[in-house]
Design a protein around this nucleic acid. Sequence first.
DNA 1: CCTTGTTTTTCATTCAGTGAAAAGGGAACA
DNA 2: TGTTCCCTTTTCACTGAATGAAAAACAAGG
Lengths: 276, 276
Amino acid sequence: MTEPLVAPPPKSVVARALLILGQFSVATPALTISELSRSTGLAVATVFRLLGELEAGQYVERSPRGRYRLGKRLWEMGLLTPLHARLRESALPFLLNLQYKSGETVQFAIPDGAAALYIEKLTNEESVPQQSRIGARIPLHATGLGKAMLAFSKPEVLDEVLAQPLKPYTPNTLVDPDSFRQELHQIRDRGYATSSEEYVPGSMSIAAPVMVGESVQAAVALVNYRLEGDLERFSEPLLHAAEGIGRRLRDMEGLDFPSLHAPENGIPEGNATAQG
Amino acid sequence: MTEPLVAPPPKSVVARALLILGQFSVATPALTISELSRSTGLAVATVFRLLGELEAGQYVERSPRGRYRLGKRLWEMGLLTPLHARLRESALPFLLNLQYKSGETVQFAIPDGAAALYIEKLTNEESVPQQSRIGARIPLHATGLGKAMLAFSKPEVLDEVLAQPLKPYTPNTLVDPDSFRQELHQIRDRGYATSSEEYVPGSMSIAAPVMVGESVQAAVALVNYRLEGDLERFSEPLLHAAEGIGRRLRDMEGLDFPSLHAPENGIPEGNATAQG
DNA sequence: CCTTGTTTTTCATTCAGTGAAAAGGGAACA
DNA sequence: TGTTCCCTTTTCACTGAATGAAAAACAAGG
């Protein structure tokens, strides 16, 4: 039996178009028609036609060299996403303030299944480890951010993380479930987590959870890539920022979307029709 | 003759799916099936099915209340866009540094036809005029950012702007073509633009173009919303930031995408296949 | 010049997509 | 509690939008 080289392409046109978009990645942000045809298993003519439609809508664009890249439209749509409109926009002033006070790199992430998803990273260093790229997912057990979230998560999440052995990234990574649980206990007591070279050698961090009621919505971290200074001296402003972000998120809980310029009256909800 | 209430829906499935996605906007970031059906002119069953496919790919998600919103996937894709991966990522360290030095709000925009498109805005003020929302487009003649870009643009762009009367937004907006040209001349001499209450009452700015060779790629601005202090005292760091960003952009010109962690060798191009 | 790899166009075939209609919620109100 | 209204979800017979093979048109090397 000869296995096909790639999975058989989906039959639905929409799924095919999305499959094409899905081929673009950090590693391959610019692709040609024939590359796309090969990697999706779709006929070149099909890829050609679908790309034409996507291009008409600015979902893809052509680079100077004729390769296709994701287009402006997708960037604009990303801004309408709750991840941006709700989380990042609420958090940014606090993150900037924190960056300003500490001078350190500031990171902001949310829990996403058994991983942390980076939403924002503010650094004034021009070169910075690529691990913490915005949009990247990192394990919960090996960073300050992850531990801060995990410590305040529902037990199920911890169970899920501990269901598999804790993967060591550096000699400092916590791999023993018992001492890991103990660590989380300490974090709950102090209200913030710290880590030193547990994920990337040479970098250390301090992180605090962003809570809305009982649930962890996100976490904020300060990171230093040179093991310089004592990050714990910033614990107070860090907790303050996390607190402030939590408050803003709480204020717009239940709303389907952030009230755009907060008319200060009741709920601007009910019947937001598309055409007024 | 009874005109249809909405334009007849496109026949292509892909165009229909994109039409659905296109309904989401800043004003209406969360919609129901029936709202979408009405605003697109598509049958509810069609919208239902297409949303199902989009949801499977995380292009849309359901809010707690059952409305549809744009999904995580779109946010992630926005990050792969040249606007983010190339422009914002290059600029951010410089912008942050500038914010840090000045304490003022920092804006970053690119020319987009006869308008400026905001790419990034760094402010530590929690409430800020909604005009300068990231993703917003603003006219070129009424802001520091716009004038900085226009002053160094090709003459065609200026012609396009002057083809229509300069729309006044405040009493300070420049509306006379001749004095406007003169202003641009001054900006070229000084290397930066200033504006005071030309677009939004109560706010003033200073802005510098980001050049790559002869062409304006973007502009950086400092904005103050309270007419406090003298922004021109920051002209030196502002120009420095614009310069630095330009240098980085120049370094990756021609590349279809930013080299991810700059292997410092030649062009990492040629055959970036999707599957290694 | 020919070779090898692309992108684009064409067109007869067919199956994925369609939408009307009906069924299945669920919230508001009397 | 029953009634009304509007929403979502499912169904299904029909049909034209989508398909992909093949050929044409282009581009880059050698």
